Amino acid sequence: MPMSALRFAAVAALLGVALAPAAAQAHRSWLAPSATVLSGAQPWVTVDGAVSNTLFYADHVPMRLDGVKAVGPDGAPVAIQNGATGKYRSTFDVQLASPGTYKIANVSEGAMASYKQGGETKRWRGAVGQLATALPKDATDVQVTYSSRRVETFVTAGAPNTTALKPEGKGLELEPITHPNDLVASEKARFRLLTDGKPAAGVEVEIVLGGVRYREKGPELKVTTGADGVFEVSWPEAGLWWLEATVQGADASGARKSSGYVATLEVLPD
């Protein structure tokens, strides 16, 4: 449906498709698990999700749970249970019924278009599948933006494995080379960024330590992926770290594409 220019700009910022990279914005999206490495028979993990000014402290708006999903150690979907959304955060549980590594992600995508009809500029937003029939036949000067965003974290029950870590080949994704639940301070970790399944070269990755509400600003790292999409991180200290990258581009039709990726990673003391 048509929207005012002001509302359209607000929606663009919310979806992470503004011209500035998402890392430059004050509000950060995150998923924070109650633990990342668990033992015992069929343990549970509780996950908080929010968009906040202070990392891992819910002080702005809750994360919507519509796109949250979990993948188990065998690659099969795992149920999201006891989901609830409050004023500042959402929360849900995942039971780790089988040993191995689980990937928990909030995946969203959408489309926006601006066009002219009868000399008037109009705007539309909605699901990608609705775009083809949403615009009027007499629309001119059509400009389309596709957006996708993936916010992830990883948890392991017992011995880790890698089945759930397999990329889906869509949007911006992280392919761990070092297992994401085997990160230790002072040890290097290696990851690969992929965009639509191919190495994302020359992409800046921002890595920020959370838990700084009661102290001075913590470490903030910036690294750039190589031609093979690989980047390395030397963790200066243990803690819960937030990683973000954004890729802007265009598809074969000239439509603009904006893909964002966020991960929460726990680094243990050496």
Rank of each mutant, 00 (worst) to 15 (best):
E173K: 01
A76Q: 13
P176N: 08
G110K: 08
V68W: 04
V11T: 02
R192S: 01
A111F: 07
P73E: 01
R190S: 13
G126F: 00
A132Y: 09
H60S: 11
S186A: 14
A105M: 11
G239S: 01
A18H: 07
V94C: 05
Y214V: 09
E244S: 14
V37T: 15
S147M: 06
A13H: 12
V203P: 15
Q42N: 11
V128F: 03
G171Y: 05
G210W: 02
A132E: 13
Y214M: 15
Y102G: 00
V45P: 03
W30R: 02
L243C: 04
N161Q: 06
S253R: 06
E266N: 07
D48S: 07
G171H: 04
V203E: 10
S114N: 09
N82Q: 15
Y214H: 12
G86I: 06
W44Y: 07
D74G: 06
G210H: 02
V11F: 01
L268C: 01
E266A: 13
A159L: 06
E216N: 14
Y214G: 09
H27T: 13
Y146R: 07
G40L: 09
K137Q: 12
P99D: 13
R190N: 10
V262C: 05
V230F: 02
V11W: 02
A41K: 07
E244V: 12
L38I: 11
F56M: 04
V61D: 12
T225R: 04
S39I: 01
N53H: 08
T46S: 11
V142G: 00
L209P: 09
P21F: 05
V128Q: 13
V203Y: 10
G226C: 08
N106V: 12
A250W: 11
A227K: 14
R150A: 08
K87L: 14
T54M: 03
G86T: 08
V51P: 08
G83E: 09
V184L: 02
S114I: 11
A84T: 15
L31Q: 11
L193N: 13
K217P: 03
G119N: 03
A35T: 11
Y57N: 09
G239P: 04
A12D: 04
